[in-house]
């Protein structure tokens, strides 16, 4: 899978309350959740982000609560991929399980303009390209088992295929 999109920059320890505040958790609809994405830390963000965009985080992206509404809100906004230096583990699991592409890139993406510069992300190769500077960053590739979940579009399809294999 290869994505190309505008990069939106976020700092370290972006928590799931920031991604989607608890007051919006009485719905499970990704499109509706997307209307409030990052609202408490960046009130204009829901109107700025558009389909295909890429979120770029620092360390420990998605820390805090286990709410799957967080990756769902990101997916609902049409974000194609999240690149971060590291992810909090429940967010990491959740993103893979719902088929939201993420990539852990230890190298800091430098000289990146928020909301204008374009990134190209190659998920299988684990490569992130800064299209303006041409610089290529190497990310952690997924273990084959997780790649398999991602390729099938999430955990539900993966488990279904395992159940069928057992029959």
């Amino acid at each position: 899978m290869i994505f190309e999109g505008k990069a939106w920059l976020f700092g370290d320890n972006i928590d799931t309350d920031a991604i989607i505040a608890a007051r919006y958790l009485s719905t499970t609809d990704p499109k509706e959740l997307a209307n409030y994405l990052m609202e408490d830390i960046r009130p204009d963000f829901p109107s700025q982000v558009s389909a295909g965009d890429i979120l770029v985080g620092g360390e420990n992206f998605g820390c805090g609560s286990s709410r799957e509404h967080a990756p769902l809100a990101i997916k609902g906004a049409g974000v194609s991929c999240v690149v971060a230096r590291s992810f909090a583990r429940i967010f990491y699991r959740n993103a893979i399980n719902i088929g939201l592409p993420i990539l852990e890139c230890q190298e800091e993406l430098s000289d990146l303009n928020n909301g204008s510069d374009l990134l190209k992300v190659d998920l299988e190769q684990g490569l992130v390209t800064h299209l303006r500077t041409g610089k290529i960053y190497k990310a952690e590739p997924f273990p084959p088992f997780m790649q398999d979940i991602i390729n099938r579009g999430g955990l539900v399809e993966y488990v279904k295929s395992r159940i069928n294999d057992l029959k």
Partner: peptide, 10 residues
């Protein structure tokens, strides 16, 4: 350990 909703479903 904490997991997400899809993990719970599976």
């Amino acid at each position: 350990t904490g997991v997400g909703s899809t993990d719970l479903a599976a």
